[in-house]
Design a binder for these strands. Sequence first.
DNA 1: CGTCTATTTGAATGTACTCAAAAGCGGTGG
DNA 2: CCACCGCTTTTGAGTACATTCAAATAGACG
Lengths: 195, 195
Amino acid sequence: MVYSLILSNIAKHIQLTKKEEDLFLSLLEEKKIRKKQFLLHENEISKFTAFVNKGCLRSYSIDRNGFEHILQLAPPNWWIADLHSLISKQPAKLNIDALEDSELLLLYREDHEKLFSDVPKFERFFRILTENAMAATHSRLLDYMGLNAQERYEGFCNRYPSLMRSLPQKQIAAYIGVTPEFSSKMKADLLRKQK
Amino acid sequence: MVYSLILSNIAKHIQLTKKEEDLFLSLLEEKKIRKKQFLLHENEISKFTAFVNKGCLRSYSIDRNGFEHILQLAPPNWWIADLHSLISKQPAKLNIDALEDSELLLLYREDHEKLFSDVPKFERFFRILTENAMAATHSRLLDYMGLNAQERYEGFCNRYPSLMRSLPQKQIAAYIGVTPEFSSKMKADLLRKQK
DNA sequence: CGTCTATTTGAATGTACTCAAAAGCGGTGG
DNA sequence: CCACCGCTTTTGAGTACATTCAAATAGACG
């Protein structure tokens, strides 16, 4: 069933009554999106948060030289949005698109707010969700500050072996913050080292 | 009064009854800390969140080469903690110390949890607080990925003019992610440009 | 005042980028 | 099913941004 993943995701932090669960599910919109299609374009105002049931999305920004930098990768069981645009109602600085054909559940901001009022437990759920995401982002920022490219590359291999297999090198390069060319050189070095 | 700043900080997002306010304030511990003293050492388990009333704190990690990287600067009216250690109860990877003589209000984790149960409005407050911090950290991560050192330096000058005045160059360098030497060269270049 | 730390400056170095060209690979249409 | 096109990946040579190391100067604090 399309809702089983999201319900188990939520059940990790809060317990819902049947009624609350029904209310919550009634607010979700199912959406299928094909590889390379956009969920959010830069300068649009973000209207929802997406939960990934299947596939993989990414959020990224484009710098003044035209290079893409991936802020977040969202494989199944993850939430993704342009948080800044969502909470400030300002135009997004990020793009969100699909790296594979994907299946999503959308929660619109206005319904989200309503949910917070009607079922305060969801304040708790999203507080915990955001705290965890924050800790992960802190750790990534520290990696950027203290590690060189090779170490970030190896860190990615170890932390996300399944993304390592499913994503093109180019996307991994855009996530760890190097050019595709240099990423390819690091890969070659790693292989040489392992032999 | 020592509580006026924190109460106005909270009133921006939630409204408390007199009783709730009293409960909250009763959980806070006042603490004064002198310049260079530590609030948290690496490998300790973080037991509280600190609100800065006066002065300035920083959280930072030390990389394998002994270089300090500042994750957060906390001037008055900001909250600071090692979030990862706090929520996972794992040993901290961060240090937190004072850049100036400072006055703090501490909220211990167990009291914090109790507060969440007794006054669910605080779930809302800290959700919003964390969301805002998250958006700020995202923007900082994107700066690291897409800007060069000069642009990060100028960005810091524009965003935090008061910290620019009060902090030693060395700390600013550790925040924007360059060596103190290079930071000094950028400063000289900026001055030359402005003439 | 003297000591310790922060800042400045310069020369040499290195990590990661740029540019270019070739090879590989996947999807699409004939 | 094969051939072609476009995109990704690889490789190499040259370059640039930021670091390292060293030494001199300035500033802060007891």
